[in-house]
């Protein structure tokens, strides 16, 4: 039995289109792995299949030796696998505190929900002053912070993050990535971070996977990947 996230021969289809093809990788507990790929390379598809939103066509995926396939997202949340979806995944009609509360609704241990809420607000203090505002009054960066904060209240072991930098200003991206790195170091979270922004993502990642048209191009440490001039021009964009 392998601990961590084990993905093998993973393929996902949309009708006739194969969006992910024979993907295999492994993430050890506590590791922060970045999946880098351009728009349409299949990053969201991968993460959505891992969180149970869509079903893969082939392959296996397990978390700490237990298969995660064929389970609903709400059940995977209860097993510590939490997905923060693309595009500031908050509910605009609800207030900030209601959005946060959503992450703890299913949990029995209400005391720990309260503690987790305080911890999240300590990580993203800007949210603390906005608790009673509707989420649609927040800036893009604040919404992304709220989405991650809500995920933390579910006390995840494995955090699946889909392009948290999307549409944000460089300074805000920096802030959010520092927070993600902090989550890994301070709370021992395992993180699968999916990004187009290779520079920012590889800065905080332990390892990187490069995805192109649904296939794995290369895996390695950030230093290795950046050192390869071909990869840099073709996939990393710097």
């Amino acid at each position: 039995m392998k601990s961590g996230l084990e993905v093998q021969d993973f393929s996902v289809d949309y009708g006739a289109i194969r969006a992910i093809r024979d993907l295999s990788f492994h993430i050890v507990p506590g590791e922060l792995v970045a999946v880098i790929g351009s728009n349409g390379s299949g990053k969201s598809t991968l993460i959505r299949a891992l969180s149970g939103l869509i079903a893969p066509k082939q392959g296996s995926a397990s978390w700490n030796g237990i298969s995660i396939l064929g389970k609903k997202p709400e059940d995977l949340v209860r097993q510590g696998i939490v997905h923060v979806s693309e595009g500031k995944s908050v509910i605009p009609e609800l207030t900030v505190s209601e959005n946060l509360a959503l992450g703890g609704l299913w949990r029995k241990d209400k005391l720990d929900v309260a503690i987790a809420t305080q911890e999240s607000l300590a990580i993203f203090p800007v949210l603390a002053s906005r608790l009673n505002q509707r989420a649609d009054s927040l800036s893009g960066g604040e919404r992304q912070m709220l989405a991650i904060a809500r995920a933390l209240i579910s006390r995840p072991q494995l955090l699946l993050l889909d392009e948290p930098s999307l549409g944000l200003a460089p300074l805000i991206i920096e802030q959010i990535f520092v927070a993600i790195s902090h989550l890994q170091n301070q709370f021992g979270l395992t993180v699968l971070l999916v990004e187009q922004n290779a520079v920012s993502a590889l800065k905080i990642a332990d390892r990187g996977l490069i995805l192109n048209l649904g296939e794995l191009v290369k895996a390695g440490t950030p230093a290795d990947l950046i050192a390869d001039p071909e990869l840099r021009t073709a996939y990393l964009g710097f």
Binding site: L53, E74, R78, V82, V84, S85, S89, V90, W106, R107
Partner: peptide
């Protein structure tokens, strides 16, 4: 409002 986000937050939609 947002069934998918609710689901990802653990709500049994």
């Amino acid at each position: 409002f947002q069934p998918e986000i609710a689901q990802l937050a653990g709500v049994r939609v």
